[in-house]
Design a protein around this nucleic acid. Structure first.
Length: 604
RNA sequence: GCCGACAUAGCUCAGUGGUAGAGCAGCUGUUUCGUAAACAGCAGGUCACCGGUUCGAAUCCGGUUGUCGGCUCCA
């Protein structure tokens, strides 16, 4: 039996009804509010409401209390279908609880947005009290809902947020109340417990505990400082990807952090990207410089430095390029969204004939990278132009060609993807890999972008077989997306227990007493001289005068994959006490036996 | 940037108008130890910052900064 779709489930209706119950409670407690929309979402529901005064978080308890009371009243939830005219009259009728001309602003707009021919329905939460008076709460809504408010028992209001009407910053900001609801008390309990557990996997917490990176207010918001273990992680990841790229014919380049603004005027960034750039710099000769938000114009300059032949193409310039973007203060999130970050960037300059093959090659590389990193849960989004926006450069023909190329390549790969209007880069459409963090938030990771426009803006050429100049096409791509985001995500994915090949410290050697230190150092040296997965093994020696138990505990909390214990017995027998992070004590064995126990590099 | 919340020692937190506390981490000494925390002592804070109310502010009020959840945006 196929799994029931969430949108068709009872839980979905229950949450939708919980949103309505909340709206009813809010309306009673704050009579002047205007309701807008209140849908179920992945883990609960929300309702966007316009409050005359600001709502404080402590008000949630009152609302929740009233919801409990309303729920117990066993109000029947009744659907009525009406004509457009009747609907308008109802929304404007102050005699109907929840409606009236003072609170109709958003509901009228919603009514207008309902396409001709589609059913228009209201849901009415009604009850008759002991005196026989009918109480109602009536809300324009597509539904469906549960049958009675008494079914809504296990819920919790979670948080308050501002949310723009219809998701547009130019519109009024409404107050969004998030809540969740479940069929049973246990499920609600489990969900809240799960949230607590997820917080322990937060990369910001683990980043500090594991000594990967830090932030300092003296340095600035969103500007991470990489500590030795985090820097080691970066090194391993870049080294791994660099090798993959060299195998595939990429050429390394290195470019500066700043450039004359003229370069970025030509690329279109100044017009299209300025609000995300750090403030400009001016030198004594009145030249203006910018801190680069992207690497592409530099790579383009390298391409354009001399005449290219079709025989030279494809050219693949790769750089771990550190860029800075002035992200809005409210958006910065640890290293998942920083203001300074390093892209595993490359720009491919290709002929039209090579486009699909090169695109496929990039996606193949991305899939290989994800496999090695152990990331299997991701979705593929093809971001195309929003036809109603003017934030793009280039003519429609180029956009269509680029979009067609991406779709074509996906079909060739048998890759499933979703189309998303408005998610293109300003210079071209793109394919993105999207992965969830510990708290279920989605992040754009790897990206491949097809670009006809920057080659045109920079008048790039190559001489074809016909000895005439032709325009190359560019592919922008970053399999990780950025080192920061990828490391943040991997940290959460593995709860800090990185696979052996990636772990910043792979082996902790723990001498039991001072007299075992010499041997420990000897073993460390030997291991550091051993190449594993193309790199020397990463080994630490804990020389502190602490008990073995404590050294083990700390190595374990640091999620070190292996511990090697050296005591008197080992000196006598020429062995090591081996302990694994996952399996605990593995007993005494020789160094070469231990090396045989290491996971095979290709099986990560 | 906007809406809401939070900010006390390196970390986790207690402290509701009257002399700043605990555990862990740190330092010193003792202990030389076999698979998740040895023992003792010591030190550590402009209670984020600035201003106000008050005889007196960590505590009440205003502002700023930083952080967290969300919106918009994004690798």
């Amino acid at each position: 039996m196929p799994a029931e779709r969430y949108e068709e489930s009872y839980l979905y209706r229950l949450r939708h009804s919980a949103a309505h119950l909340m709206a009813q409670a809010v309306q009673e407690l704050f009579p002047k509010v205007q309701l807008s929309i209140g849908p179920p979402v992945e883990n609960g529901f929300y309702y966007d409401i316009d409050f005359p005064q600001p709502l404080r978080e402590e008000d949630l308890a009152r609302i929740e209390k009233r919801m409990k009371e309303l729920s117990k009243l066993d109000q029947r939830i009744v659907r009525t279908e009406v004509s457009r005219e009747e609907a308008k009259a109802m929304i404007l009728d102050p005699a109907i609880p929840g409606n009236g001309p003072d609170v109709a602003e958003f509901k009228l707009q919603l009514l207008d947005a309902i396409p001709e021919g589609e059913a228009i329905s209201f849901y009415d939460q009604q009850r008759t009290d002991r005196e026989g008076t009918l109480h109602r709460f009536v809300d324009l809504c597509r539904g469906p809902h549960v049958e009675s408010t008494k079914e809504i028992k296990h819920f919790k209001l979670m948080s308050i947020a501002g949310a723009y009407w219809r998701g547009d910053v130019r519109n009024k900001q409404l107050t969004r109340i998030y809540g969740t609801a479940f069929e049973t008390a246990d499920e609600l309990e489990n969900y809240l417990h799960m949230l607590e557990e997820a917080k322990k996997r937060d990369h910001r917490l683990l980043g500090r505990e594991l000594g990967l990176f830090m932030f300092s207010p003296r340095v600035g918001t969103g500007l991470p400082l990489w500590l030795p273990k985090g820097a080691m992680l970066r090194h391993v990841m870049t080294d791994f990807l660099q090798q993959e790229q060299l195998k595939r014919g990429y050429l390394p380049v290195v470019t500066p952090a700043i450039a004359n603004i003229k370069l970025y005027e030509k690329s279109g960034h100044i017009i299209n990207y300025r609000d995300k750039m750090f403030p400009f710099m001016e030198d004594e000769e009145r030249e203006t410089y910018i801190l680069k938000p992207m690497n592409c114009p530099f790579h383009i300059e390298i391409y354009a430095s001399h005449m290219r032949s079709y025989r030279d193409l494809p050219i693949r310039y790769a750089e771990f390029g550190t860029v800075h973007r002035y992200e809005q203060s409210g958006e910065v999130t640890g290293i998942l969204r920083a203001r300074g970050f390093t892209q595993d960037d490359a720009h491919l300059f290709v002929t039209p004939d090579q486009l699909i093959e090169e695109f496929v090659g990039v996606v193949d590389l991305m899939q290989a990278v994800l496999k090695k990193l152990g990331l299997t849960q991701y979705r593929v989004r093809v971001g195309v132009k929003d036809p109603h926006s003017d934030k793009y450069v280039g003519d429609d023909e180029n956009w269509e060609a680029a979009t067609a190329a991406i779709k074509n390549a996906c079909d060739k790969l048998g890759l499933e993807y979703e189309l998303s209007e408005g998610d293109a880069a300003f210079y071209g459409p793109k394919l993105d890999l999207i992965i969830k963090d510990a708290l279920g938030r989605e992040w754009q990771m790897g990206t491949v972008q097809v670009d006809y426009n920057l080659p045109e803006r920079f008048d790039l050429e190559y001489i074809g077989e016909d000895s005439k100049p032709h325009r190359p096409i560019m592919i922008h791509r970053a399999p990780f997306g950025s080192l920061e985001r990828m490391i943040g995500l991997l940290t959460e994915q593995y709860a800090g227990a990185f696979p052996f090949w990636l772990s910043p410290n792979q082996i902790a050697i723990l001498p039991i007493a001072d007299r075992h230190i010499e041997k420990a150092q000897e073993v460390a040296e030997c291991l550091r001289g051993t190449i594993y997965d193309t790199r020397p093994l990463r080994v630490s020696v804990d020389e502190r005068r602490e008990t073995l138990g404590k050294k083990i505990r700390e190595a374990q909390l640091q999620k070190t994959p292996f511990m090697l214990i050296i005591g008197d017995k080992d000196l006598e027998d020429g062995t090591l006490g081996v302990r694994s992070r996952e399996e605990g004590d593995l007993g005494a064995m020789t160094l070469s036996d231990f090396l045989g126990k290491l996971p095979h590099p290709s099986a990560s």
